[in-house]
Design a protein around this nucleic acid. Structure first.
Lengths: 150, 150
DNA sequence: CGCAAATCAATTGTGCACAACTCAATAGCG
DNA sequence: CGCTATTGAGTTGTGCACAATTGATTTGCG
């Protein structure tokens, strides 16, 4: 694997291209997820919250936010909509009255099975090999960590 | 470089991780850009539009949308804000009255110089090597193309 | 030519992201 | 113990993303 020289001009262009590709890829994924999740009545961010709850059980809003890198300004209304849809239930923590625990309802648990085929469909739609996906995941994780330092 | 076997469970998890990493990385970039662009008075999507105009000169809304993968529902209000900020000017195309040409004002042209240090700062903030950035760009481009096929 | 289909921009409505703020509850220091 | 600082959730306001629709203009078929 040769490394072509990186001119100043290419470096500047590379930044634009990486940032733009990231932005575009994120929205492209969103579009495909929108299709795949339509029949479940979930948006992609709502699906991410459901994944957390399916995997980890009842969790406080704060903890969900840490896992998904989202703050209360985003989660509060989103969780309100999930509650209105009958998928989750909110309850104040008895230990700490500031904290609100999010718990799946029966309907929320039940949705899990219908969501199972979604990831495999997405995986196929990316057109990447498993190795490439691993590389992508790794690079994205490192970028996010580095950017979040500043 | 060995290829560990991919279990069914890992495949499912890999999809979640890639999608989530993409989502998170995109927002992490947005946050850093927000900082870097604050003194220019631009948001990241507005900056992308300015990049297109700086590079290609006056272009119709349609063409900008194709380059940035954005539709008129997003661009119309965004361009209105750029116009209100005195950075661009809108004019109906004489050749085709349906089309609206976006043209930089003097202030819009002038902003270019102040924006020059931004990409280098971003590049450094990613913490990746040039080769890794090239790999990332390539993978993201392929994913977006594949996803946009469906 | 005349009219139906396509095209382009804009608008409307919903939802996400995030900064800035409020308010209640808790932790922790003197 | 009392008071201050911090924490957790929610609210408000701005802006982006996108589906669906509207309205004006152009294209192109018959």
């Amino acid at each position: 694997m040769t490394t072509p020289p990186a001119s100043d001009a290419e470096l500047l262009r590379l930044d634009h291209q990486v940032c733009f590709s990231l932005h575009a890829a994120s929205r492209a994924f969103g579009g495909v997820y929108r299709e795949a999740l339509k029949e479940l009545g979930l948006t992609y961010p709502q699906y991410l919250v459901m994944l957390v709850l399916w995997e980890h059980g009842p969790e406080p809003v704060k903890r969900i936010g840490e896992r998904l890198r989202l703050d209360s300004g985003t989660l509060s209304p989103l969780l309100k909509r999930l509650e209105a849809a009958g998928l989750v239930h909110r309850e104040r923590s008895p230990q700490d009255e500031r904290s609100v625990i999010i718990r799946l309802t029966g309907a929320g648990e039940g949705l899990r099975e219908r969501a199972l085929p979604v990831p495999r469909r997405m995986l196929a739609a990316t057109g990447l090999t498993v190795d490439e996906l691993r590389t992508l995941r790794s690079l994205l994780g490192r970028v996010t960590s580095a950017l979040d330092e500043g």
